[in-house]
């Protein structure tokens, strides 16, 4: 085999090998002269648009396969992120609550000349059926929380403690029918009794000859367990007719037990 290859079995083949060798030699010479490099560079420049197009096509295809390959990992990561988000949201809501508590505490401390020893600040337990407050050592003197103690929100009387059970004190809100009667008076000194009808806070038992003015502020008169001057609300409307023996007015309260983070018990 080698013999036939080296001796060039026929003249045509020998001639061809000579041409091939000559061309090879020429290319080497051109390479030394720098011409072949220029030519290959030119060829590369001509191929550039095709190469760029292929790069785009292959990158897209590779990205698609990569997406399929990493699909499971991505799903797991999204699930992890969702869990983390839920956790973060829970922490955020706790922080919001703490912030609200903090601001209310600050307001209570700044806007009052009362001694804190006579006040217990607690957290409300919002329940439409059984509104209550929670209190323990961390909320100050527990002995101040007694049945009948007034419960205030933003310096406004909203209810009375009706029952104490361990660390819970159930509240009768002013609009509830079972709330004990409270003596109140208007700015003009007109006295009456405060009670709830299950829907509104009412100022009743006001003699017909007494003048009630819409927008007048109403505060407690002072009775056993309830100090004088606790703000209750403003007269919103007067309900009594001409035939009625007494006047009744609806009291509007601008705060709600259900919308605050902290309440005060005196």
């Amino acid at each position: 085999m080698w013999r036939s290859f080296l001796l060039f079995s026929n003249r045509v083949q020998a001639k061809r090998w000579l041409i091939v060798a000559g061309v090879g030699l020429l290319l080497i010479l051109l390479s030394f002269a720098g011409v072949s490099n220029n030519l290959t560079q030119w060829g590369h420049c001509q191929l550039q648009p095709l190469l760029r197009f292929n790069v785009r096509v292959i990158t897209e295809a590779y990205r698609s396969t990569n997406n399929i390959r990493t699909w499971k990992t991505t799903v797991r990561r999204v699930q992890d992120l969702e869990l983390k988000l839920a956790h973060a949201q829970a922490q955020l809501s706790q922080l919001d609550q703490l912030q609200a508590e903090n601001s209310e505490l600050r307001q209570l401390l700044n806007s009052s000349d009362r001694s804190l020893n006579q006040v217990t600040i607690t957290r409300p337990i919002v329940s439409l059926a059984q509104p209550a407050i929670f209190f323990d050592q961390s909320f100050g003197d527990q002995s101040l929380v007694r049945v009948g103690s007034p419960v205030l929100v933003e310096e406004t009387l909203v209810g009375l403690v009706s029952k104490i059970d361990a660390n819970l004190a159930y509240i009768s809100l002013l609009w509830q029918e079972e709330t004990p009667l409270i003596l109140v008076e208007t700015q003009a000194g007109v006295q009456g009794i405060l009670r709830g009808n299950g829907k509104y806070v009412l100022l009743t038992e006001v003699p017909t000859d007494q003048e009630l003015i819409i927008g007048e502020r109403v505060a407690t008169t002072g009775q056993e367990g309830i100090e004088q001057g606790l703000y209750v609300g403003e007269i919103q409307s007067i309900q009594s007719g001409h035939s009625s023996a007494v006047k009744t007015a609806i009291i509007q309260q601008y705060v709600s037990f259900y919308e605050v983070a902290l309440v005060e018990v005196r």
């Binding site: 290319l27 051109l30 390479s31 072949s36 030519l39 290959t40 560079q41 060829g43 191929l47």
Partner: peptide, 13 residues
């Protein structure tokens, strides 16, 4: 060989 060299940055020879 020129096409191969141009595409792969090889020397032509």
């Amino acid at each position: 060989s020129l096409v191969l060299a141009s595409a792969y940055h090889l020397s032509w020879p």
